[in-house]
């Protein structure tokens, strides 16, 4: 469930980025409308959503800013914890809702990517130099046990999305990830 991006070697970099961008764009096309911000009543559930948001943010940064290698290093280092978090999050959604829960989980992850990409677009040319610093921050942690406390301080769960809320399925406009080379004159 927690997968590395294809190695960003020069001969593969172009195809890896195209594949990743295509996957992200496809996911964004399925994203649903925003819901009111919520916070999980249970701190553990809130932490699961925040770690998922952190992973999504780093993926968006990696694809938009050509930092696939750094994302792969992050995934490799924290793989056991990230894998367990993904499973726990899926269990949270499917525990009482079965297949509907699976759809809710998929919708949440998709909406998360959409929201983070939209925020990245708003930052324009500042997005890559600013948000790439997240890789250095997360790699300075002592281990996976620090991930929840670190993610809790990054305010990555979009206010329009919240956590622990059932996601209504509705079509929404796709959001293209911010591109590192595009200058938006900000």
């Amino acid at each position: 469930m927690t997968e590395r991006l294809p190695d960003a070697r020069p001969e593969r970099r172009g195809s890896a980025r195209r594949a990743g961008a295509a996957a992200l764009t496809a996911a964004l096309l399925l994203s649903s409308a925003a819901v009111a911000a919520t916070r999980c009543p249970d701190e553990q559930h809130q932490a699961m959503h925040e770690v998922a948001a952190l992973k999504t943010e780093l993926l968006v940064v990696a694809l938009a800013c050509k930092q696939e290698d750094r994302y792969n290093e992050f995934v490799t280092r924290f793989r056991p914890y990230l894998g367990e978090n993904d499973k726990a999050l899926l269990r949270y959604y499917t525990g009482t809702r079965g297949r509907a829960g699976q759809r809710d989980y998929d919708a949440y992850v998709t909406n998360l990517a959409n929201a983070r990409a939209k925020l990245g677009q708003e930052l324009g040319s500042d997005f890559c130099p600013r948000n790439s610093a997240l890789f250095a921050e997360v790699m300075s942690l002592s281990g996976g046990n620090d991930l929840p406390a670190y993610a809790a301080g990054k305010d990555l769960v979009p206010a329009t999305l919240g956590a622990c809320a059932a996601q209504a399925a509705a079509p929404a406009a796709a959001v293209r990830p911010a591109a590192a080379s595009r200058s938006r004159g900000r």
Partner: peptide, 9 residues
């Protein structure tokens, strides 16, 4: 600082 952790929300 390199990073910060929220120890009490």
């Amino acid at each position: 600082y390199a990073a910060g952790l929220v120890t009490a929300r």
